[in-house]
């Protein structure tokens, strides 16, 4: 029941987001026709009219939205103005690249962040706690692109440990790229996104874990002679891992933003980089499609977080 309600809400939010995206594109001063015409001055007024009808621009905004949304649902994202190929073809390959980047960083930042947060809570007040807190506190307001630049400067330019950009060595055919080479080129962007993502989980986990350690049930656990490790394993982990996972799913939004920046700095051929290129090049269909896809992803991430909570927590399940 609870799950059904949350799912419905998430779906309405996704629809809401698509309306908002469409409205912004629709009411923007850069209407697609003008943009198209300006790129091709030889078009006659009749041709422009024909184009308008083809794109449904002669109809009202609501009708246009439904035409647009319907096409999106069918996976027909239109044709890219920059690349003159179907948007779906461009996105397909890029999507996997971004998925690899974000997936690895998401897991790494979650695991490392949780570990650091828990450690800081158990060592609260000690040096290790102070170091971890200070580190996270600074990282929370560090822009991903600046961290990317610093990592690139130090690890790639100064120490030549990693390549400066791209997902594969330049001039090598895609089929000939080895797995090791891919990993090699994935390293810096992953590092950037993971490090940026750690701070959030760490600070949250530390706070949650400190609450748990101050709770009466941990007091009781200690009174029964449980060791620190036993307290962590029996009570701390159980009560803190769920909020951390929820938080990590809710972090999808920031993750997408971070990947746009990291992909831009390292010229990593993923969705984020494509979004920037499409935006700067005025490629409305491509831009809109990526915005929509990332939005759907983020809302689904939040939904998954909600559902996980409902399933795992016996108190919510009992409602």
């Amino acid at each position: 029941m609870v799950i059904a309600l949350r799912t419905v809400r998430a779906l309405t939010l996704i629809v809401g987001m698509s309306v908002l995206t469409f409205a912004l594109m629709h009411f923007s001063p850069l209407d697609p026709i003008t943009r198209y015409v300006s790129s091709d001055p030889r078009m006659s007024p009749e041709q422009i009219e024909k184009l308008k009808i083809r794109w449904g621009l002669d109809k009202g905004p609501v009708e246009q939205y439904f035409i647009w949304a319907g096409a999106m649902l069918r996976g027909d994202f239109g044709t890219s103005r920059l690349y003159r190929t179907p948007v779906s073809d461009i996105i397909k390959g890029r999507f996997l690249m971004s998925l690899a980047l974000m997936g690895v960083s998401w897991v790494l930042s979650g695991v490392i962040g949780y570990g650091l947060g828990a450690l800081a809570a158990f060592k609260r007040g000690k040096t290790s706690d102070k170091v971890i807190r200070w580190f996270s506190y600074v990282l929370v307001s560090t822009p991903a692109f600046w961290l990317a630049l610093i990592l690139m400067l130090v690890l790639a330019v100064w120490f030549h440990l990693f390549p400066v950009g791209l997902a594969a060595p330049a001039g090598v055919l895609d089929a000939n790229v080895t797995f090791a080479q891919r990993l090699w080129h994935l390293a810096l962007p992953v590092m950037t996104l993971s490090v940026i993502g750690i701070a959030n989980v760490t600070l949250h986990t530390r706070e949650k874990m400190v609450d748990i350690l101050n709770s009466e049930y941990v007091l009781f656990a200690k009174a029964r002679g449980e060791s620190s490790w036993s307290v962590f394993w029996n009570h701390g982990f159980r009560n803190s891992v769920l909020p951390a996972i929820t938080l990590q799913f809710a972090y999808f939004s920031e993750l997408f933003g971070g990947s746009v920046l990291a992909e831009d700095v390292f010229s990593y051929p993923g969705l984020g980089n494509m979004l920037t290129v499409a935006g700067l090049g005025g490629d409305l269909p491509l831009f809109g499609a990526i915005v929509l896809i990332s939005g759907v992803f983020v809302f689904l991430g939040n939904l998954v977080a909600d559902i996980v909570c409902v399933i795992v927590d016996p108190r919510i399940r009992a409602l």
Partner: peptide, 12 residues
């Protein structure tokens, strides 16, 4: 709250 903020800003 749910919208990917940076991407929405880029859109705007």
């Amino acid at each position: 709250i749910g919208m990917p903020h940076l991407i929405f800003m880029m859109l705007v």
